[in-house]
Design a protein around this nucleic acid. Sequence first.
DNA 1: CCCGGTCATGCAAGCGCTTGCAGCCCTACC
DNA 2: GGTAGGGCTGCAAGCGCTTGCATGACCGGG
Lengths: 340, 340
Amino acid sequence: MTSIDDVARASGVSTATVSRALRGLPNVSAATREAVLATADALGYVVSSSASGLATGRTLAMGVVVPNVSRWFYATVLEGIDAELRRVGYDTILFNLGLKGEDRERVFHRSILRKRTDAVIALCLDFTPSEREQLASLGHPTIVVGGPVNGLRHLGIDELAVARAATDHLIGLGHRAIGHLAGHPEHGLNKRVPRRRRRGYELAMAAAGLPVRPEWIEPSDFDIAGGREAALRMLGRSSRPTALFAASDEMAIGAILAARELGIEVPGELSVVGIDNHALAETFGLTTIAQDPFGQGRLAAELMLAELAGEPPRTDLIDVPTALIERASTAPPPAATSRL
Amino acid sequence: MTSIDDVARASGVSTATVSRALRGLPNVSAATREAVLATADALGYVVSSSASGLATGRTLAMGVVVPNVSRWFYATVLEGIDAELRRVGYDTILFNLGLKGEDRERVFHRSILRKRTDAVIALCLDFTPSEREQLASLGHPTIVVGGPVNGLRHLGIDELAVARAATDHLIGLGHRAIGHLAGHPEHGLNKRVPRRRRRGYELAMAAAGLPVRPEWIEPSDFDIAGGREAALRMLGRSSRPTALFAASDEMAIGAILAARELGIEVPGELSVVGIDNHALAETFGLTTIAQDPFGQGRLAAELMLAELAGEPPRTDLIDVPTALIERASTAPPPAATSRL
DNA sequence: CCCGGTCATGCAAGCGCTTGCAGCCCTACC
DNA sequence: GGTAGGGCTGCAAGCGCTTGCATGACCGGG
């Protein structure tokens, strides 16, 4: 491995000059800089991150804590983060926290705190109070993307408003019998997200003077299989709603699949709306409230980088925009049931 | 930040002893070790990875190069890798290489080689010759998971055999008119995977003396939307096959969706088989050749760690096992067309 | 009682880089 | 022509840890 000394020797200057030249610092003559760059390139020199990290106290790496990476939302946020970091030469260190117990403890204790990262972005997950405290006291910039977590800065959509908007869309179409496929509190995932989406649904219903029937709220996993099962349960019953607000697009897709299996026409007999604008939403013609997880990831990364660059931290809650996308899964209710 | 000196001072021993005690090295008395551990814990001491990395030449981090993280296969391999690494205290550094051009170049040049990692695991993607060479000459253990890449060690399923097995399953059921939803060469993804799966299909057909009609091979993206579109095209034509071998489960699911849209019954009028055992395969009752990406990721990590621990490298090609899982999407062909 | 051997510990030299400070050479101005 | 000032460059002291070697204490056997 070639070191900075090799480059210095080969180009006939001191290591200090090499260091400055390579990093674009001032006080290096153009000629010297060019020569250094050339020899460094020729020698295939790459700075050792350990050494420069030790000397500067900066690791040029961002910790990203995720509950898992298989879920569309997390994967996409992660890609957004990584894209931004990569752009400025930062590395992404992944901490998969979807695990329980000892491993999880180890992540916190040994790794995140391992002074390996300059900042930490956590994707919305369910932290224990102790974990929260450790994160908060980390001493470097930290932000949570996707679901509000007490005591930590947060960036994401306004869950309540989005859920209301989705429900209001159905109400606006004339639906009165509206069910909700609610999210389960899944292990590791932030429990406030499903809760607030459900609350938004309830608020919208209440505001419109519509009844919320307990049997029309069906909790399940946040994914396609979960949505399908929940919808099969709900739609199989004698009296079913004319519209469904699903807590996520994947659940909504599951509901559409379930409806097809039961011979229920979408949107003729059943309207379905979700949240996300998942990659598959278009394929299924799903009406949804779009959010932009890639952009959220990128924004989170930008914020952290800005703080690391010395800018004052933004302490306000950051709500990112969403937009209703109407596709083929929603329509006015069938005449017969519209005034149920 | 508390350093090793703080711990040494607080426990009245030298930094050398603290270092040895903390890492469980021999030649430290039990009493001393315990005392050191206690004070380190009390002080919240965590070793600086930069410093120890610089001193030992080990970063305790593994580079993982992925084309993207939204695709089920990659996400799952990644989780397998991360789980194993986490277990032994290694960190996962993510390199999202799905990008083009300059960023991609930067990843290779500035990051991977940044002496930040002890080893590199690359998920099957499409490397340029120069990238391949850089990887190969990295000087530390490297392996590719998922798709064979010339000149690099590789771990994954036997693409050819799997494709043959899937096709043979259909042939065994009595199908003679078998179409193939082939994978597109997508940007960044390993082009050999779709090619070999197609070749396996062709070989199986040839071995059974069955004709391969060009219009029954329909290439598309590797995902649900791609599979759906390809299937819509193929199944919309006047003479359609009685069975479909899709190059991935996501494509197979797309085909099932397409069949439903066209009113074609699965498996009554059309059998569908895929590869992967994707999370959704069960939901759709999809017959498939299962592979275990989580296990592949874990295995790759284990191999790298073993080499880092000094064991001699395994140089053989490593084929991981697969298994046919019969579900509800395959059946003998309808009597009328079975002797087409 | 002496001595070689073991074990626990400390010393100090790095690991490869960054950076404050000092030194040198020029230029420009008085 | 002298000098202040600015631009380049080099020196060397760390950054926090690891580790080969030296040291000293203690043990048992001859």
